[in-house]
């Protein structure tokens, strides 16, 4: 990347759920504008890792520095950090009680980031970008899965985040809708957004990722360019996993 600025710095991250160690020792630096794709078998801790990055999960040990702020410190205003870190969920999580436009303007308005007109204009711009401008007045229940996920991405973008986290954004979609969501993500990657993506879409990973991380058993087992990890994996666990999914 042109500007070699570290956006996310993770050092010896640990996370336990009760007695179960989900993340054992994760260290990684993610650069400005980098697209990192995290793959791995279910239960490997990849979603937990992602959720630690905006403290939806509290880490048990180690440090996570996002945009220069150590979010593992208790006294950090995590809401301020989250304003700059968008997240897209597997099950979309659009606000069911609000229409598309209000879904998108809620946070900017509540956090006084924009006036009502500005927020609306920004929301329409973002809807335009994901190709759903005509759905502004619709309620989430009236949208297809692919449309919901595109709105969810647009909603996150309304906060002007520096970083976007994607937690298996296409896993709950019907196959014919996966493409439209991946296209939006590709455009976003091309625009220089820093992205961390947990996914099972290997084709997408190959095409878009700057770096692929293979996680298993709470560790990063292997990382490198898509060519290195997906085409010429060195670790036997990576080879096993790729044989199963490809």
């Amino acid at each position: 990347m042109a500007a070699e600025e570290i956006k996310i710095h993770v050092e010896h991250l640990k996370k336990n759920f009760g007695k179960i160690e989900v993340l054992k020792d994760i260290s990684i630096d993610i650069m400005q504008g980098e697209v990192v794709v995290v793959i791995g078998p279910s239960g490997s801790g990849k979603s937990t890792f992602l959720r630690c990055l905006n403290r939806l999960e509290e880490s048990t040990g180690g440090t996570i520095v996002v945009d220069g702020v150590d979010i593992t410190q208790k006294k950090v205003d995590i809401n301020k950090v989250r304003e700059n870190v968008g997240m897209v969920f597997q099950h979309f999580n659009l606000f069911n009680n609000l229409n598309v436009l209000n879904n998108m303007t809620l946070a900017p308005l509540e956090l006084k980031k924009a006036t009502s007109e500005q927020a609306k204009e920004k929301a329409m711009q973002m809807l335009e970008r994901v190709g759903l401008a005509e759905k502004a007045e619709a309620y989430p229940s009236q949208l297809s899965g692919g449309q919901k996920q595109r709105v969810a991405i647009a909603r996150a973008l309304c906060m002007n985040p520096d970083i976007m986290l994607f937690d298996e954004p296409t896993s709950a979609l019907d196959p014919e809708m996966v493409g439209e969501v991946l296209q939006v993500m590709k455009d976003l990657a091309a625009s220089g957004m820093t992205m961390v993506i947990v996914t099972h879409e290997m084709g997408f990973a190959r095409e878009v990722a700057d770096r692929v991380i293979f996680m298993d058993g709470g560790y990063i087992v292997e990382e490198g360019t898509p060519e290195e990890v997906l085409l010429n994996p060195k670790e036997s666990r990576t080879i096993d996993f790729l044989n199963k999914v490809l």
Partner: peptide, 15 residues
């Protein structure tokens, strides 16, 4: 109410 609703709201920076 699905837990995801709260998570999504929190992830946007809302208290």
């Amino acid at each position: 109410v699905d837990k995801g609703q709260m998570e999504a709201a929190r992830s946007l920076g809302l208290s």
